[in-house]
Amino acid sequence: MKNDIIVAGVGGQGILSIAAAIGLAAVNSNLYIKQSEVHGMSQRGGDVQSHFRISDKPIASDLIPAGKADMIISVEPMEGLRYLPFLAPTGWLVTNVTPFNNIPDYPNIDDILSEIKAVKNHIAIDADAIAKEAGSTKASNIVMLGAASLFLDIPFERIEEGIRQLFGKKGNDVIQLNLKALRLGREFSKKNR
């Protein structure tokens, strides 16, 4: 079993919480992990990505080879497209559709959406709207994780367990809200895959 995932977004959008939740789920499943993160300069509103590798065998490279990623999880629509050179022909692009516009030449959203639709396997999800439905737009990253969970070779219960661990200190309300966000994201993927 092997899942090579690129998590993409903009510095400050908190993509590392997605990575952390998958990390906990993978550790709890006794899998090997390598997760390369971005710290430093680009965290100031630049494009950021994390290479996340899970396997039942030891993993060599911290970086995913181009054309080999099984999935791109992007919390921002343009950012997911940036990493298409990494995506395997059979891989999934799971992306939020809400733009994060902090540059003067941000493209027309319709052009971005049509590029997303041109990817054979894609899930385009309004994570912010679904997160609101779950109780807080803050949970949009967890909605994304839920949408992506359908394509991960980790049992869903393990991911739920990861969420409980990740938000454990913040009290039961926060845990329940995020579990709801996770499930709604997963439901969306089931209906729209």
Binding site: S42, R44, G45, M78, L81, R82, A88, E115
Partner: peptide, 27 residues
């Protein structure tokens, strides 16, 4: 490293031209 060894190199789809640079900026 694959290229240096003369091994076949995998590549995904090219980045669409619609994607713009996003340099870091002051908060």
């Amino acid at each position: 490293v694959a290229k240096a060894l003369g091994l076949p190199v995998t590549e995904g789809e090219p980045m669409p031209v619609v994607v713009k640079n996003r340099p870091p900026s002051l908060c």
